[in-house]
Amino acid sequence: MPDNVLIIRLHSLSGEDISMVTGDFDGERQAVEAIASALDERRSLVLTQAGYDHETETNGVVVNLANVVLVRVSTSDSAGAGQYL
């Protein structure tokens, strides 16, 4: 996993929340813009350097944003940090 990791927490309409660690973006702003663009264009979010819950192994992940109601992007996994979308 690269040094510039971000934590993306997805809150779905139903089901459990998902927390992923990704090195796909240079910062929070770039991640939020990419997620907002995917939502506006009604397409999936594609991550090439992602892992679940602080895994050390990175994988490619495709996120279907159709049922996502809230996304939080942060550099730490605390409840009060990060940008919401």
Rank of each mutant, 00 (worst) to 15 (best):
L6H: 12
N4T: 14
L39S: 09
A81M: 10
A50K: 05
Q30E: 14
N4G: 12
Q83T: 09
R9C: 01
S37E: 15
T58D: 08
G82E: 03
A50N: 07
A81Y: 10
G80D: 15
V32D: 01
N67L: 08
V73Q: 03
L10H: 02
L10V: 02
I18R: 08
G80Q: 14
R42I: 11
A79D: 12
Y52W: 11
S74M: 09
D17H: 09
A66D: 14
A38I: 04
R42A: 15
V69Q: 03
V5D: 13
Q30G: 04
V71H: 00
L45W: 00
R43P: 00
S44I: 04
D40T: 13
E41N: 14
I18T: 12
L10Q: 02
G80H: 13
I18K: 10
N59W: 06
D24N: 05
I8K: 05
N64F: 04
I18Y: 08
A31Q: 04
E57F: 12
I18A: 10
L39M: 15
G23D: 06
V68F: 01
A34C: 09
A79H: 13
A50R: 06
I7C: 13
I35G: 08
D53C: 07
Q83G: 05
G80W: 14
S78L: 12
S44F: 11
D3N: 14
V69W: 00
Y52G: 07
R43E: 03
L10I: 03
L10P: 04
M1Q: 10
A66C: 10
G27S: 08
V32K: 05
N67K: 04
V61A: 03
I35S: 06
T56P: 06
T58E: 08
V5I: 13
